[in-house]
Design a protein around this nucleic acid. Sequence first.
DNA 1: CTTACAGTTTAGAATCATTATAAACTGAAT
DNA 2: ATTCAGTTTATAATGATTCTAAACTGTAAG
Lengths: 144, 144
Amino acid sequence: MEQQKFHINKLRVSGLRPTKQRLAISKILFNRRETFHFTIEQLKKVIEKNSKKKISLATLYNTVHAFKKKGYLKEIPLKGNQTFFDTNTSSHHHFYDEDTLQLIDIKDENISINNLPKTPNGKKIQDIEITIKVASNYQKQKDN
Amino acid sequence: MEQQKFHINKLRVSGLRPTKQRLAISKILFNRRETFHFTIEQLKKVIEKNSKKKISLATLYNTVHAFKKKGYLKEIPLKGNQTFFDTNTSSHHHFYDEDTLQLIDIKDENISINNLPKTPNGKKIQDIEITIKVASNYQKQKDN
DNA sequence: CTTACAGTTTAGAATCATTATAAACTGAAT
DNA sequence: ATTCAGTTTATAATGATTCTAAACTGTAAG
Ligand SMILES: [Mn+2]
Ligand SMILES: [Mn+2]
Ligand SMILES: [Zn+2]
Ligand SMILES: [Zn+2]
């Protein structure tokens, strides 16, 4: 288990105790080649499949927010009842598939916005993240 | 009251009975020169100021959703606990002031996105709306 | 190896925006 | 005036998230 040590160290460095729960969640979130986009509810299901001991919902919330605070996760601004998290913490854009409710990273670094108007007086831009809703054409638009 | 007739007609044409409540809400929403961005809670407060008879919260929700369905309001995709509505129903972009929690229309028609990557297979773009978060520079970024 | 304790986990309660329910009310057609 | 579908309303229900306070545990010190 080389990964194990890696995650333990990462947690220690962050001032977070490497508990069983945090390690289990770390493995599921960060032992991946691809970006992982998820809601807490989705994460719960993955945990229930992969882990024998159950982790309480409160701990899932606690841990995900702790990871976010430490910069290991990003929260994705998306309207809807549930909040999305993203293991890709760089500033980037998304397609949002309204059929499957899945986020898809836009890897193209060349995407750009032109002719941006001046920002309101005394304000600075904090963040620009574009979410492009896509769906199968024939379907009715969601009543979101 | 020319406006009154206008709103009554608009409601009738839409297949909505022109009730006292709907007329009161119509006046507040649509007798404006500027776009109005609001949450239900904000609308409730404006109503309470301007109208002697109170309108139940359920009716506010019902009416706003009815107006949205008829195309007189747009729901703005914005993360957060409360949903925003917009009297400007055209496709357009926003600044979101994180200090005041206010939406501001971007009127510049020339804004454009360049180098958009191809959409996922079999999917069509439904909507692109950009929300640019702004805030006073000196402030800490919101823990949204 | 024990002890001690801050940090962590947990079940369950609380919160809060929104939606559902079902009874009372009302606009408007007859 | 009568009638009834459409509407309003108080209230309950829902569902995601946060809070609470008690039990537990990683680890530093002895
Ligand atoms: Mn809605
Ligand atoms: Mn959060
Ligand atoms: Zn992403
Ligand atoms: Zn607008």
